[in-house]
């Protein structure tokens, strides 16, 4: 069977995902409000810090630079909120995954297909408006064309990493009924170590080293390093992308292995 035919099988899941999303049209508005509020907290907090330094302040950021960083970080977070974690957790909890196992498709890929339109819709209907809103309120820096292209590529990789992280989070549903707690834990840890609340450059040495080593760095700090040109030459940029790609592959492999183990257990238990 050709790869195209195989990929086609997942198309209905993608359009279905978009369809169910559009049913709750107020969702976009609300996601936007949430994102704007989240961005405002960090932006205003850090702008208060940079209020006293006219040029480059702590970490080499200017006031406009840190604003751009935090806002785009929030937009990336919106792209990563693909709802894969709650849906997988819910389907595991309800036992609906058992139904999926008898279909000639791979459940993780189904979830991936279903989340792509969510990501696209969030970017278009939430990310862009939020950025526009803030660009009227606070000064921001414009990236160079090259950096913007690097950022776009890096963002795609970050979406992959986020998908795997959310899939793994959702799979904790096999272990506990309180996936709410797990999701909150994931959200806090990811937001912090991705550099969404505090740029990794502003963390003290050891903490920054930990953050740089974790996969979450590739979700926010990585793309933003490229967007703001905070890298050393081509090698530096490639290094960021390579680290992201490496983590994406590693997490995908980990998801696949754990998924197989979990469903194997499911078959033994009979759902």
């Amino acid at each position: 069977m050709s790869a195209v035919t195989r990929a086609r099988r997942y198309l209905p899941f993608a359009t279905g995902g978009l369809q169910s999303l559009l049913q709750y049209r107020s969702m976009f508005f609300v996601t936007g409000v949430t994102a704007a509020a989240g961005a405002a907290v960090t932006v205003f907090l850090w702008r208060a810090v940079y209020a006293g330094s006219p040029g480059a302040g702590p970490g080499g950021f200017t006031a406009a630079g840190i604003t751009t960083y935090l806002l785009v970080a929030q937009v990336l977070q919106v792209l990563h909120a693909n709802r894969v974690d709650d849906e997988v957790a819910a389907e595991v909890y309800r036992g609906d995954v058992a139904v999926m196992l008898v279909r000639p498709v791979s459940y993780p890929l189904v979830r991936f297909a279903a989340c792509l339109p969510v990501v696209a819709a969030n970017a278009l209907l939430v990310g862009v408006p939020v950025l526009l809103l803030f660009s009227f309120l606070v000064p921001m820096t414009a990236p160079t064309a090259g950096n913007a292209a690097l950022f776009a590529l890096s963002t795609l990789l970050s979406v992959l990493i986020a998908f795997c992280v959310n899939l793994l989070t959702g799979m904790t549903g096999f272990l506990t009924t309180n996936t709410w707690g797990v999701r909150m834990l994931k959200q806090s840890v990811v937001a912090f170590f991705a550099g969404q609340l505090v740029p990794i450059a502003l963390m003290p040495g050891p903490l920054a080293a930990v953050a740089m080593a974790l996969p979450f760095r590739g979700m926010v700090d990585g793309p933003l390093t490229l967007l703001l040109g905070r890298y050393e030459g081509v090698a530096g940029a490639l290094g960021v992308l390579a680290q992201q790609a490496g983590w994406a592959v590693a997490l995908a492999a980990l998801s696949a292995v754990l998924w197989r183990a979990a469903t194997g257990r499911l078959e033994v238990l009979g759902g």
């Binding site: 978009l18 369809q19 559009l22 049209r25």
Partner: peptide, 10 residues
């Protein structure tokens, strides 16, 4: 019905 119908409700 379908995707167009869902889009229209937007």
């Amino acid at each position: 019905p379908g995707l167009l119908g869902a889009l229209a409700t937007l």
